[in-house]
Amino acid sequence: MSLNNLFEPASFSLKEYLVTNKEIKRSIFYKNRYLQIGLGIFFIIFVLSIFAPWLSPYSYKEIHLDQRNLPPCKEFIFGTDDLGRDIFTRVFWGARISFAVAFLSAFFDLLIGVVYGSIAAYSKRYVDEILMRFCDLLNAIPSLLIVILFVVLIGPGFLAIVTAISFTGWVMMARIIRAEVFKLKEANFVLASKTMGASFFTIFFQHIIPNVRFVAIATLMYSIPSAIFTEATLSFLGLGIQAPMASWGVMISDSISALRFYPWRLLFPSVILTLTTFSLNMIGEGLKKHE
């Protein structure tokens, strides 16, 4: 290349020298350890609970009076309880019940909370005040007490428990959703939509709801474990799911007095419960990180 050529005009594109915004896998699983672990563990337990009736040759209420309080062995993987029932089957039946209670309550929490919170966020100032005052009032009595009172009133049973838990659980969701909707209402992209003539419903369902998804699910990851614990506490107080149905709360309460002699009766339900709530927490963390 002669000297003259070097100084000739030339144009150039900097493309290969620029840092690119590589197309990272859009999947939320990518490198999100929390989500991976959380969903993994939860999925395993969930699947096992669905197949609970077929997991072992025994049913959850099958009594073997001659084989009471056996430690884990070949026939009974998790051992037996004081009526000779197979703990393994009961743990996963318990999972079904606890999941049913927790998910149903959480679902109602979500529904009521989102509706209530959105209405509050969109109403006039004084209406919002009144709505929030009502929430505060509901919070004045510890929720566990309300649940207890409810169940004492109506009598224990699946439906009563779900209703009772939903009755107090929606407040937290409503508060959080309201805060989120407040923020989003004023966001620039909502304003932009409005100026282009979008109707209220379009804005609400297309812009606001998708954006509260993350917060809502993260809060759910808190309400579901809370519901599971509440159910356990109710069982401890004798107000929970009634025998012979198995739920984790029932199994744990019954095994406490026998802890000294038959620790496996406490161990297995507790471990599975802890793993479940832990995995839900991990999912919540993972979602927060993704956000």
């Binding site: 599971i228 356990a232 744990i252 802890t274 479940t276 709530t277």
Partner: peptide
């Protein structure tokens, strides 16, 4: 720690 129920 907050996955364990107080009972346990």
């Amino acid at each position: 720690w907050f996955s364990m129920p107080m009972l346990v």
